[in-house]
């Protein structure tokens, strides 16, 4: 199966709520038209142990763009506490699917969030 050209996904925000819902939102600027198979987010346990796909909701955005969002109940993640889980944006059409890593906007970013060993929120300076 041939790989379709990657869809340019741009993350707007990742948020997490007290009831354990991770919400991802962003914009897709289609390189070769709308992906007819739709969009989803894939949460993959690092090392290839397991992954799970969550369909995204879409709505029209600016010309040539689609607004995409997805909510993930974190309690459903089938991963061990010592694992790390990486997030991908996936676009699927008739010719197959493509994945891109969900990222912050690294060109402008100076501070990146991380949880401390006590579970508190801190930020570390992004390596230049």
């Amino acid at each position: 199966m041939s790989q379709p050209p990657p869809q340019a996904f741009e993350l707007s925000k990742a948020s997490v709520t007290a009831d354990g819902l991770l919400t991802l939102s962003g914009t897709v600027r289609a390189v070769s038209g709308q992906a007819d198979g739709g969009y989803s987010f894939v949460l993959a346990v690092r090392g290839g142990a397991a992954e799970r796909e969550y369909p995204a909701r879409t709505e029209a955005g600016a010309p040539g763009a689609v607004r995409v969002s997805c909510s993930v109940p974190l309690a459903e993640l089938a991963a061990a506490p010592e694992d790390f889980v990486d997030l991908y944006f996936q676009a699927r059409d008739a010719s197959g699917s493509s994945r891109t890593r969900v990222t912050w906007q690294p060109s402008s970013l100076r501070w990146l969030p991380y949880p401390t060993k006590f579970g508190n929120l801190s930020l570390k300076r992004k390596a230049q």
Binding site: A14, G20, L74, V85, L87, W104, P115, G119
Partner: peptide, 14 residues
């Protein structure tokens, strides 16, 4: 719970 964070490359992980 699972907490979002940024890898050294600025990618989103949990």
């Amino acid at each position: 719970t699972w907490r979002p964070y940024a890898t050294v490359h600025g990618s989103l992980s949990l």
